[in-house]
Simulated scan of single mutants.
Amino acid sequence: MEKRKIKDNIYWLGAIDWDRRLFDSLIPLPDGTSYNAYLIKGSEKTALLDTVDPPMEDTLMEQLRGVEKIDYIISHHAEQDHSGTIGRVLEKFPGAKVVVTPKAKNMLMDLLRLDESVFSPVEDGDVLSLGDKTLTFIHTPWVHWPETMVTYLEQDRILFSCDFFGSHIATSDLFVTDPGRVYEAAKRYFAEIMMPFGKVIAKNLEKLKPYDIDMIAPSHGQIYDQPGWIMDAYDQWVNGAPKNLVVLPFVSMHGSTRQMVDHLASALTDQGVRVELFNLPVTDIGKLAMSLVDAATIVVGTPTVLAGPHPMAAYAAFLANALRPKTKFLSILGSYGWGGKTVETLASMTGNLKVEVLDPVLCKGLASQSDFKALDDMAAAIAKKHKDLDLV
């Protein structure tokens, strides 16, 4: 695909990765992704903002054919899907300076073995003139690495946001054409990548408020030509209260735990609490992560395996602990054959969650009437907790 005009002398470059289905050997990509770079031609200087993942470097280099000179390569983020082709671009434009945060300079020297002489570090708020176009660099640490920054183009009121506000979508549409689809993809992206840094992201959202932003151009996904709704969504995701929602990731080997899960889900529904079940052997982990953005309560359902939780249940607990959602309450349900330390093991894996732990319900073999009564009590307790916090 050729470079595409966004505004006068501002172009999208990059590559659409229609086939990619896994990112970082970890994150599902049901809709593929894109690696967005941008070319800004000022009256005096030209800047390339980010590059592409190395497997797509030939696409970017073909798009740069006919570009006479690049004076600056703006590297917002050192991760290789953004920075990995900088070396190749420098071969074509050896006079270009790589504009980075001071932390990014050191990281790129380590990751790409670039010589120190190619860098031009910038501090938070520094300004770079391209002639008739002015770039302001805003440090946004931990969105989602410590060295990240974004760039604001003053004259055209465009925020080049790198991973901030990104979404993994492969599409030929340059701008957002289906906000519902993009909202879901952006929420998935936030849940899987940004949520652990919610408190810092809230501060970085505040840093953007003084800027008049008409357009957001991220490094993954489509360009927002009406950016207000995605900025509002981020504000809700990081600052808003959790919702009246119980997320219940579970695994069942012989049906006992599933029977308990179904009973609790029904009891919660009767209490006016919304429930989302995730049968872990067949779950899209990205969907589970998205649900954690809103969950007020997590209940992990697991049988006992070798005296501890089922490995898939342990993974769900590990994931929640790593993502650090705004969840307020946590509990466990499940069954065992002769004993074990399921509760202790899962509790030791969730130290990052600032939650109130509710009494677990574990049964020996199939659940009895007293076990079902305990599940009804759990549902009632959760409903009261949610009501006391006025969750909706």
Rank of each mutant, 00 (worst) to 15 (best):
Y152E: 01
D115T: 11
L174P: 10
P179W: 10
E116P: 06
G180T: 14
L112D: 11
S117G: 12
L174I: 12
D126Y: 04
T134S: 03
A170P: 00
S120F: 13
H144N: 15
P146S: 05
V118T: 03
D126S: 13
I169L: 02
Q155P: 05
V150S: 10
L128K: 02
L135Y: 05
L174H: 09
M149I: 10
L135V: 06
E116Q: 12
C162G: 12
T148K: 09
D132K: 08
S161H: 00
D132C: 09
T148F: 04
V143R: 12
L174K: 09
I169Y: 01
V143P: 07
P179Q: 11
E116Y: 07
E116I: 11
I158V: 03
D115M: 09
I158M: 02
S117T: 14
G180Y: 13
E116L: 06
V122C: 07
D163K: 06
D156Q: 13
G125L: 01
T136F: 06
L159A: 01
F175Y: 13
F137P: 12
K133I: 08
F119G: 04
S167H: 11
Q155A: 08
V122F: 08
T140A: 06
F165E: 07
V182D: 11
D132E: 10
L114P: 11
F160W: 02
D126A: 13
V176Q: 05
F164I: 03
F160R: 01
L135E: 05
T171C: 10
T136N: 10
G131D: 01
R181W: 07
T136D: 07
S120I: 08
G166L: 02
I158G: 01
D156C: 07
V176P: 06
G125E: 03
H139M: 12
D115F: 07
C162A: 14
G166S: 09
T151I: 04
G131F: 01
D173F: 13
L111F: 12
T136Q: 12
A170Y: 00
T136V: 15
F137C: 11
D132V: 09
V118W: 04
T134G: 03
S161C: 00
I169P: 01
I158Q: 01
L111N: 13
G131C: 01
F119P: 06
F160L: 08
G131A: 02
L112W: 08
L128H: 03
S120R: 13
V127H: 07
L135K: 05
D110G: 14
F137W: 08
H139Q: 14
D163R: 06
E147F: 08
D115W: 07
L128W: 02
L130M: 00
L153S: 01
V182M: 12
M149Q: 13
T136M: 12
W145M: 13
H168I: 05
V150K: 07
E147K: 05
V182K: 08
S161V: 00
M149D: 11
T148R: 10
F137K: 12
C162Y: 06
H144S: 15
S120C: 11
D126H: 08
E184G: 14
D124W: 05
L153N: 01
F119E: 06
G180N: 15
W145P: 06
S167T: 07
F164T: 03
E154I: 11
T151Q: 02
K133G: 07
G180P: 12
L128R: 04
T140D: 06
